[in-house]
Nucleic acid binder design. Structure first.
Length: 278
DNA sequence: TGGTATGTTCCAAA
DNA sequence: TTTTGGAACATACC
């Protein structure tokens, strides 16, 4: 469920609950979710205090004291809950952190895609992650460089966490719509104004989504308000809010992709090579 | 029953 | 070498 805005919201909600607490116990039901292994995760967190809760891309980052890091990725259906028992199906509870004051942090995940990772070195653990799109490092120039370095279609490129960390299927579609760019447009063929538009679109959609606390579709993620403000995602066949054309749906890079065929350019026919007869 | 799902990774093919 | 497509992971929902 969660992309950058949802993970950021979760971090903000849980930060006041977990920061400063000491982990007295940890239990996990589905060992495959633990990396590099159940023993390493147990040793990594039990007995340590949570000094800070943060985010890197779609990872929730627990900074521990004595030093160490716990990274949690919620993937498709993971969620945190606070308290003795979870609101979801009890059978979906996958892991529990028990604090020294008996409070509990629960990790529920029906599909078991989520991951709990212990890392002694945060930099090494996040070495494969790309630039943070809301950081000062993500400039128009930086985006231009990333787009030039690869020769790929925009949609799969923006979803690639090694390039930009945090965009998922919803906000990629929304950013491309705001920028007026076709999801199939080639990354190395954008004009400078198009790059600038894409940069502004990515930042504005993520910032707005954080303000509205993310997008809620089902019980996997609650409390969001952004779903009422999406322009293309989930609006297949409905009129484009800008021009009225039916929003198109296509499978691009194995992901359902929503776009306005009229407002979003650079997809294919626009890029027929210009042939000059001579 | 089959298709789809807000994510990632691995492998094979182009 | 780089990019793309398919399958896998595991479960719920329509």
């Amino acid at each position: 469920v969660p992309e950058l805005p949802e993970v950021e919201t979760i971090v903000r909600r849980f930060r006041p609950l977990v920061e400063g607490r000491r982990i007295a116990g940890f239990r996990a039901r589905w060992k495959k979710q633990l990396s590099p292994g159940a023993a390493a995760v147990w040793r990594g967190c039990v007995g340590r205090r949570i000094a800070r809760l943060g985010r890197r891309g779609k990872f929730i980052v627990f900074e521990l004291d004595p030093p160490g890091w716990l990274l949690v990725h919620l993937r498709m259906s993971g969620r945190f809950e606070w308290g003795a028992n979870c609101e979801c199906e009890p059978g979906h509870l996958r892991a529990t952190w028990i604090f020294d004051d008996s409070e509990r942090l629960l990790f529920c995940d029906p599909r078991k895609f989520g991951r709990i990772i212990y890392a002694a070195d945060l930099a090494a653990a996040t070495a494969d992650l790309g630039v943070e799109p809301l950081s000062r490092a993500f400039t128009v120039r930086k985006l231009a460089e990333l787009l030039r370095q690869h020769h790929r279609r925009l949609k799969p490129l923006l979803l690639d966490q090694r390039v930009i960390a945090g965009l998922g299927n919803i906000y990629t579609d929304e950013a491309l719509f705001r920028a007026g760019l076709h999801p199939l447009a080639r990354s190395d063929r954008l004009t400078p104004p198009q790059v600038a538009a894409l940069h502004a679109a990515i930042r504005s959609v993520l910032r707005q989504a954080i303000i509205y606390q993310g997008t809620t579709f089902d019980h996997a993620y609650a409390g969001g308000g952004m779903q009422q403000r999406l322009a293309v995602y989930g609006r297949r066949g409905q009129p484009c809010l800008r021009c009225g054309t039916a929003i198109q749906y296509a499978r691009i890079g194995q992901r359902g992709t929503h776009f306005c065929p009229r407002c979003q350019r650079g997809g294919g026919s626009q890029h027929r090579p210009v042939r000059r007869s001579r």
